[in-house]
Computed example of a mutant assay.
Amino acid sequence: MRTDPETGQTVLSGMGELHLEVAVEKVRREHGLGVNVGRPG
């Protein structure tokens, strides 16, 4: 996980699509955060 200095976005990297889906769902469930998913721009 890193913060993009130009956009201020938090960028999560993973070992593949399934790995990222599990991580995003965990953030949503455990922390109650809204998460926008897409490729970094």
Rank of each mutant, 00 (worst) to 15 (best):
T10N: 12
V22G: 03
L20K: 12
G8Q: 09
E30V: 05
L33I: 07
G41T: 15
E30W: 00
T7Y: 04
G38F: 02
S13L: 15
V22P: 03
G38R: 10
V27S: 09
V27T: 14
P5G: 05
E17H: 11
H31Q: 11
V24G: 01
A23L: 15
G16A: 10
P40G: 00
E21C: 05
E6H: 07
T3C: 03
R28A: 06
E17L: 14
E30P: 00
V22L: 11
D4S: 08
N36D: 10
R2H: 06
V27L: 15
E6K: 11
G34V: 06
K26G: 09
N36R: 14
V11I: 12
E6S: 11
P40E: 00
H31A: 14
E6V: 12
R39G: 00
H19C: 05
R39L: 08
G32D: 07
A23H: 03
Q9R: 15
V11A: 00
M1Q: 12
M15F: 03
E25A: 09
L20W: 10
V37E: 08
R28N: 06
L12Q: 04
E21K: 14
E17I: 12
L12Y: 03
E25P: 05
H19G: 04
L33V: 12
A23F: 04
E25K: 15
V22D: 06
S13M: 10
G16W: 05
P5Y: 04
G8A: 09
V24I: 13
R39N: 03
V37D: 01
N36H: 14
G14D: 11
L12V: 15
T10S: 09
E21L: 13
E21I: 08
G16E: 07
H31P: 01
G8R: 11
R29L: 12
K26M: 15
E6I: 08
P5E: 10
G34I: 06
T7R: 06
L33Y: 02
N36A: 15
L20E: 09
S13I: 13
E6R: 11
G8M: 12
R2G: 01
G14W: 12
P40D: 00
G38S: 10
R28M: 11
Q9W: 14
L18V: 15
N36E: 12
V35R: 06
P40F: 01
G34N: 09
G38V: 05
V22F: 04
R29I: 08
H19E: 03
T10Y: 04
S13Y: 09
M15N: 08
R29N: 13
M1W: 07
R28V: 09
T3H: 00
T3L: 05
L18I: 12
G41Y: 10
M1I: 10
L33E: 04
H19Y: 02
E21G: 09
E25I: 06
G16M: 09
K26I: 10
